[in-house]
Write a protein that binds this DNA or RNA. Structure first.
Lengths: 110, 110
DNA sequence: TTATTATATTGCAATATTACGATTAATGAG
DNA sequence: CTCATTAATCGTAATATTGCAATATAATAA
């Protein structure tokens, strides 16, 4: 029914998956890469860079902000977005712990 | 309209996001953690472990298999699933490259 | 003030995802 | 062969996501 049954999973599992979910769209990857690449923070250049409509970009930015991966500062009529370093590091390490877990490789397996 | 415009993104961006997408559901995280934890490979124990119906688990396994994160071997009436180590390592490093990228922190930013 | 520019929000259409009951397919047991 | 067991597939309902046009909001410029 389109609804994820979050209640039956551990906080850990829900946290990992919800972080991963934000990374699960190419537009959001593109936005993040752009924010990493550009030395100055970015505003609506993203709309030009990425080929999506302004409301669509705005929506993706909202997702990224909600998760805490980026933050935005209002500068005049435009908004300056950038990576939220602290949170990025935090989420990165959560994913790392999951990705780097060891496999007991005792050959019982396929 | 529910359709991701993959054409406008780089292969890199599409690859990263599609790997992340698979990790974007707690059931799939739970399945993968279980496969890591158990020394012997697992079949339908997953249905008992995780509180989802058999067809639902089967669907998630299919996703994981499609991406190459796991593989399954038929053993009698049951199926033995396990982590596909090579692919896991490959995808892990793709995500690592993305997550570990450097930020030019020149204070231009918010 | 009015106009302009930049971004957010709303509303909606199209598609995707999640979940499960019912069914099917495949194997092994008797 | 028939029955039980296990897992995949089908069909479908409910909800989520993606994308955009239209509109609203906010700040600056003239």
């Amino acid at each position: 029914m389109g609804v994820t049954k979050s209640e039956i999973f551990s906080p850990d599992q829900n946290e990992i998956s919800s972080i991963a979910k934000v990374f699960g769209h190419p537009a959001r990857i593109a936005i993040l890469q752009y924010l990493f690449k550009t030395d100055s923070c970015i505003c609506g250049d993203l709309v030009n860079e990425i080929g999506l409509a302004q409301p669509t970009i705005s929506q993706h930015l909202k997702e990224l902000k909600k998760t805490g991966l980026i933050k935005g500062n209002i500068e005049g009529t435009s908004v300056c977005y950038c990576i939220n370093k602290e949170n990025w590091t935090k989420m990165k390490s959560i994913l790392h712990v999951f990705l780097d877990q060891d496999l007991n490789d005792n050959g019982n397996c396929c």
